[in-house]
Amino acid sequence: WLEADRMLPRKQRHTIRRVHDRLLAETDYDGEYSTTMRYVHRWREANRGMPDREGYVRLEWAAGSMQVDFGMARARIAGEMADVHCLVASLPYSNMRLCVALPGENAECLCHGLMLVFEHIGGVPPVIVMDNATGAGRRNAKGEVALTGVFSAFVAHYRLEVRFCNPYSGNEKGSVENAVGFLRRNLMVPPMRAESYGQLSRLLLERCDGLARDSYCPRLPDVPVAE
């Protein structure tokens, strides 16, 4: 299956979960997901240099670096269905994914959401990579971003280094884009219920912790992401 994937578009290839599900459904295999994951990782490492239809460079992320992006989801807040702006943060090195619920995507919501994430993980990442300048500032015709006053003060307070992705380099933000879809499918189906955005954020973070305990770090296959 992995060899046959070379002839398919990259977004239509087997994930590790899909390989594991097919093994259980179509063969006599009865191994654990972690066993499948270790095998697939070894196969990909061994075959990385072989010819492929598409060339790519694997990005290396330092431990602690964080990617941030917004995604939309429906949820019931205080009995009413609402469009929730989900601030998603991913730590590519460990594949940790976190999500909080906000009413908008302006600078105040962005700063508040990041504060909730920092408090939850008990630390501040040295580098934050953002998908675009929404809520953080404005991008001019040259591609330069001028931070808003609120976000500039937030960055100075936490002593962060903030980087903005190149609009033509989607691979720079692949981790968080995958996290947005993954968390929406795994946490927000069916739509969640809460009395407030604060309560919904707490529920989302609790579920993110549960997913992290049940999955493994891609670089250390025997170590749960939560560790």
Results as ranks from 00 to 15, higher is better:
residue 141 A to G: 04
residue 87 L to D: 07
residue 15 T to D: 07
residue 144 E to C: 02
residue 113 G to F: 02
residue 29 Y to F: 15
residue 118 F to T: 05
residue 35 T to P: 02
residue 91 L to V: 13
residue 66 M to N: 13
residue 189 V to L: 09
residue 189 V to N: 07
residue 221 P to N: 04
residue 162 V to L: 06
residue 12 Q to T: 02
residue 60 E to H: 15
residue 1 W to I: 03
residue 136 A to G: 14
residue 73 A to V: 12
residue 174 G to L: 01
residue 18 R to G: 05
residue 100 V to M: 08
residue 51 P to L: 12
residue 157 H to A: 14
residue 218 P to S: 01
residue 50 M to D: 06
residue 70 F to P: 03
residue 52 D to H: 15
residue 167 P to L: 09
residue 7 M to L: 13
residue 5 D to F: 07
residue 164 F to D: 10
residue 168 Y to S: 08
residue 152 S to Q: 15
residue 109 C to N: 15
residue 89 A to D: 04
residue 128 I to R: 11
residue 107 A to E: 00
residue 219 R to T: 00
residue 40 V to N: 09
residue 222 D to P: 00
residue 88 V to Y: 12
residue 165 C to Q: 13
residue 86 C to I: 06
residue 208 C to R: 05
residue 21 D to M: 10
residue 110 L to Q: 13
residue 54 E to W: 14
residue 179 A to F: 05
residue 172 E to H: 07
residue 9 P to Y: 04
residue 63 A to S: 06
residue 78 A to S: 14
residue 187 L to W: 08
residue 22 R to T: 04
residue 123 G to D: 00
residue 171 N to Q: 14
residue 43 W to R: 12
residue 121 I to L: 00
residue 170 G to S: 12
residue 106 N to H: 07
residue 193 R to F: 14
residue 145 V to F: 06
residue 35 T to I: 02
residue 161 E to N: 03
residue 206 E to A: 02
residue 212 A to L: 14
residue 117 V to S: 07
residue 78 A to D: 15
residue 89 A to I: 05
residue 137 G to D: 11
residue 213 R to V: 10
residue 200 L to W: 08
residue 49 G to W: 03
residue 93 Y to M: 02
residue 6 R to D: 13
residue 206 E to W: 14
residue 179 A to V: 01
residue 76 R to C: 14
residue 96 M to Y: 11
residue 114 L to E: 12
residue 223 V to W: 13
residue 139 R to S: 10
residue 194 A to H: 09
residue 212 A to I: 06
residue 224 P to H: 07
residue 59 L to Q: 07
residue 145 V to G: 10
residue 150 V to R: 15
residue 164 F to N: 03
residue 7 M to Y: 13
residue 180 V to N: 13
residue 45 E to N: 02
residue 194 A to I: 12
residue 182 F to P: 07
residue 98 L to P: 10
residue 200 L to D: 00
residue 211 L to T: 05
residue 125 P to S: 03
residue 2 L to S: 01
residue 88 V to C: 11
residue 37 M to E: 14
residue 120 H to A: 07
residue 154 F to E: 02
residue 30 D to L: 01
residue 159 R to S: 13
residue 110 L to K: 09
residue 197 Y to T: 01
residue 70 F to R: 04
residue 36 T to C: 15
residue 131 D to L: 09
residue 75 A to W: 15
residue 61 W to T: 05
residue 193 R to W: 05
residue 206 E to S: 05
residue 88 V to W: 14
residue 223 V to N: 09
residue 33 Y to I: 08
residue 151 F to Y: 15
residue 106 N to A: 04
residue 35 T to Y: 03
residue 193 R to N: 14
residue 130 M to A: 10
residue 202 R to F: 06
residue 146 A to F: 08
residue 50 M to T: 08
residue 90 S to C: 01
residue 129 V to P: 04
residue 90 S to L: 01
residue 41 H to F: 05
residue 2 L to I: 00
residue 39 Y to H: 01
residue 2 L to A: 13
residue 198 G to W: 14
residue 181 G to C: 01
residue 116 L to R: 15
residue 108 E to N: 10
residue 146 A to I: 02
residue 119 E to R: 06
residue 217 C to F: 03
residue 106 N to R: 06
residue 17 R to C: 03
residue 201 S to D: 07
residue 131 D to A: 01
residue 159 R to E: 08
residue 165 C to D: 03
residue 201 S to T: 02
residue 72 M to W: 06
residue 141 A to D: 10
residue 79 G to K: 14
